[in-house]
């Protein structure tokens, strides 16, 4: 079932002193998906083999089904209460931990980005900026609330305040081109704000998405908070937008027909449909607390204030 790209490749490793070691067969990784904190293959048993620009296969990648998506939504919904209730300070630490893990595995991501067609320089830059972006959002976890919340000076004798709360489960169709920084740029604001998410990775460049799941798995991100699927946008976008237990959808792309379909299907349950068009994910303008705000709800609470010292005396 597994097609190994260069099955006969035997690596002859040279040690530092130049001595030849015995031939050793390189172990090639099976790319899985990430659902509920576990790494299954797709329930459908299907796979596809995306190729890079030189025509080399990137591997047998899971061609996820609608059922995989539904399972992932169940996992995301189950994780929502815990994650949204996690202290922002703790969420911040976990995002920072993600950055640490990514830094530690830089070489692997650079190698995968190169296999997907980036130059070494580009790959290096994309990984570095991805790490920095995680740190950027790690910092926002316990700050955006103060920017976007308010105490409202109502005219009646009530204490009234508005706070941000996560909107719930967010389905995300990640950017196709920048497979790592694009992925990080859409996941980080969603989970920094306490949402859980189901992400469809770049269809033609899925490798670092799956490896990024390994980063998540070793960063104390609870299982189910981020679920990463691979497969075809054309097969899955309707499920991503029509599912009744998904509260918001983020679509990164420019296909007008897909955008329209997503917006129509989102109406099934009054989903918040967020379209990210023409964003340069490598640029600093692709990071902002307003991306966090997009998947937040504003909740306003009222409570009466007893008029202490109503006789005019005060305290």
């Amino acid at each position: 079932m597994k097609t190994i790209t260069k099955a006969t490749e035997v690596v002859i490793a040279s040690s530092q002193n130049g001595e030849e070691k015995p031939n050793r067969l390189k172990v090639i990784k099976t790319y899985k998906i990430y659902v509920g904190g576990k790494f299954p293959r797709t329930e459908s048993g299907r796979y596809y083999t995306p190729k890079n620009s030189e025509g080399h296969s990137l591997g047998n990648i899971c061609l996820c089904s609608r059922k995989d998506f539904r399972d992932a939504v169940v996992a995301a919904r189950s994780a929502f209460a815990g994650w949204s209730g996690t202290a922002p300070f703790t969420r911040s630490q976990i995002l920072y931990r993600m950055a640490e893990m990514l830094e530690g595995r830089k070489a692997q991501f650079i190698e995968e980005l190169q296999r997907q067609g980036s130059s070494l320089k580009e790959a290096n830059y994309e990984v570095e900026i991805s790490i920095d972006r995680l740190i950027y959002y790690a910092g926002w976890c316990d700050k955006y609330q103060q920017i976007f919340s308010s105490v409202n000076p109502v005219a009646s004798s009530h204490f009234n305040f508005s706070v941000c709360e996560p909107t719930g489960v967010v389905s995300i169709l990640a950017p196709e081109e920048n497979s790592l920084i694009g992925l990080v740029s859409v996941i980080a604001p969603a989970i920094a704000g306490g949402n859980t998410c189901v992400v469809l990775a770049s269809e033609n460049k899925p490798l670092c998405a799956v490896t990024f799941a390994e980063v998540l798995n070793t960063s104390d991100v609870p299982g189910g908070v981020v679920n990463i699927l691979t497969g075809k946008k054309s097969e899955l976008h309707e499920q991503f937008s029509s599912h009744m237990d998904v509260n918001a959808i983020v679509y990164c792309g420019i296909e007008e027909e897909v955008i329209k379909s997503i917006q129509i299907k989102s109406a099934n349950n009054v989903k918040r449909a967020l379209i990210r068009k023409n964003i340069n994910w490598l640029n600093d303008s692709a990071q902002s607390p307003y991306f966090i705000l997009d998947t937040q709800e504003v909740k306003t609470t009222w409570h009466p204030v007893e008029n202490i010292g109503g006789g005019g005396g005060g305290y």
Binding site: S150, V154, A155, H158, S162, V270, K299, W302, P304
Partner: peptide, 26 residues
């Protein structure tokens, strides 16, 4: 829910944001 009244109900004010979660709108 987007508006919670604690020990009161159906109070409105222009300074107070109003609106819903889920199928109550956005």
């Amino acid at each position: 829910a987007g508006v919670i009244w604690a020990n009161t109900y159906n109070k409105f004010d222009p300074t107070s944001p109003f609106g819903g979660y889920k199928e109550s709108g956005f």
